[in-house]
Design a protein around this nucleic acid. Sequence first.
DNA 1: CGTGCCAGGTGCCAT
DNA 2: ATGGCACTTGGCACG
Lengths: 245, 245
Amino acid sequence: MELYPAMDEINNALKKNHIIVIFSNCNVEYSGRAQSFIAKGDRMIIMKHDGTILVHKPDGRTPVNWMPNKSIIEIKVENDSLEITCTNSKTSEVMIIRAFNIYSITSAPLVDNEQLRLLGTEKDMSDMLYSTPSLISEDFTPVSREEQTKYGFLDVFGHNSKGELVIVECKRYTAGLDSVTQLRRYVERVKKSKGITKVQGIIAAPNISQNALKMLTDWGFSYKNISPPYRFSKEEEKQAKINEF
Amino acid sequence: MELYPAMDEINNALKKNHIIVIFSNCNVEYSGRAQSFIAKGDRMIIMKHDGTILVHKPDGRTPVNWMPNKSIIEIKVENDSLEITCTNSKTSEVMIIRAFNIYSITSAPLVDNEQLRLLGTEKDMSDMLYSTPSLISEDFTPVSREEQTKYGFLDVFGHNSKGELVIVECKRYTAGLDSVTQLRRYVERVKKSKGITKVQGIIAAPNISQNALKMLTDWGFSYKNISPPYRFSKEEEKQAKINEF
DNA sequence: CGTGCCAGGTGCCAT
DNA sequence: ATGGCACTTGGCACG
């Protein structure tokens, strides 16, 4: 495809706020939070109307280069290439794509007002523990969940029958060393704020690494094997079907 | 576009290991590590020949749904839709796309053997501090960098002239509470392993949050303002913006 | 806006 | 495979 017609076609599609996909042989230069370069190769360039730009290799889940939304696109023809300069003033980033061959340009005015509904997050997990505290222990009364208390952000926070405070840190995957240090930080913060020495710390997760478990018990905390919920409730499923029509 | 021809075109492109881009009106259902659903809307579907599948909304950097590589794609025509089922046996995930309208299908045999070269990572930063330790202090002699010592992962590890051990934790962005707890964990590990009480802990970063700085000093550690190579410091960035006008 | 923290995180490299 | 951790992390919620 010739460079000038390609430039015109892209600029037209940009003007119409279309989403644009370009298959091309190009190199990419990036400068901003870091600096990068990738030499000539066949790639897919995606331009979204919010100013997001993605450059994808033929393989892999993650774009090899990208620019955040609200980026500005400028195109000009150089000797042997289409030079696409993407700048973002907010983040002080620049990405320059030099396309030496353009195989195809596709664009379309996509409209999508729907939002993803997701179940099985850590929030769902802490909600579950809040409403069914016996999953943690018969001797646990939750007080707050997923809240920014004055002691910090605590997943589930409550007390036992002796009145001792209990802090539960949820992880939806394997808990590692970082999870334990996080719990420790919360416990220390509460201890210091309240001027008390006895606070129970619990990690609730479907799994925990060996090192993390050792560090956990060394610090006098405990582990409870709990998996996050991951299914829509009956009501939500019904609602999903209704929304479709 | 009719459903049967669309199915044939996609299957042909899959057979040829092309990268495929489909603009369509579809809903998407996901089940695996969590569960999700998004109702009908215009989206871009990308199929890569390594089995990666991405579903993009017209906006945003992140795909609304996706499947990891080595996923298997099966397509069939239902009453009113093209049903694209993506399964990954390794991760036990399933994604089902129901396309009610197919606006366009584009495919191409992209070849890309190049790899991204990236500068300004945390590794580059620890390399810099290792080769130019005076950036930390005139009284600092590094011994190892980015190595799995028997004390754990330490970014830069060394000693001062009094023979006291020094641990430097690098961050290429603003250091937060987690950075401080990470440093503390490393310092404690070394102290315990060596049976010593005096270990210097230093955070090297271009910036540090107020809370993190307080926790850092509370724990007797210190902060050194250092930017990763190839990245402007906060002040330089500000200056750069001023110079633009 | 910065700060904190989850994510269906992803990717890389180590044991 | 599991684990420990950085990432141009991205994204959101809250002070």
